[in-house]
Amino acid sequence: MIELLATRYAYLLMFVLLGIGLYMTIASQNLVKKLIGVNLFQTAIFLFFVAVAYVEVDGEPGGSPVVPATENPASSDLILASPLPHVIVLTAIVVGIALTAVGLALIVRIYSEYGTLREDTLREVRADE
């Protein structure tokens, strides 16, 4: 059991972070904190992608994905992390900040319309209308 957890630490961390992000989006009454929860959830997914790309041989970590400048590299030089998940995460982080910014703009707008950021108060205000 300990062995299992020790060798899969990144996935374990990812699952717990998914839980924390989900908890924040469900339980926090404040909209800004909900958005931070969404961000946390996102980073957990990013961690999963980065963790599957990582490689090590006999406990020695490989290299970052910068290939040697030769036409036909030796396979021993190619113990490198996989570049494809890195690319996906790279673009996802940038799209993530764009998403966060639109969410924040909506929050600013909601505040100027209703004067509150708390979900329960917002519900009451909307019910009164």
């Binding site: 900040i97 703009a105 600013v108 100027s112």
Partner: peptide, 17 residues
């Protein structure tokens, strides 16, 4: 694009509604 959008987002959020 990224530089411009970062600046845009900053000024838009700073201005508020």
């Amino acid at each position: 694009i990224v530089a411009g959008v970062v600046i845009t987002l900053f000024f838009a959020t700073a201005a508020g509604f």
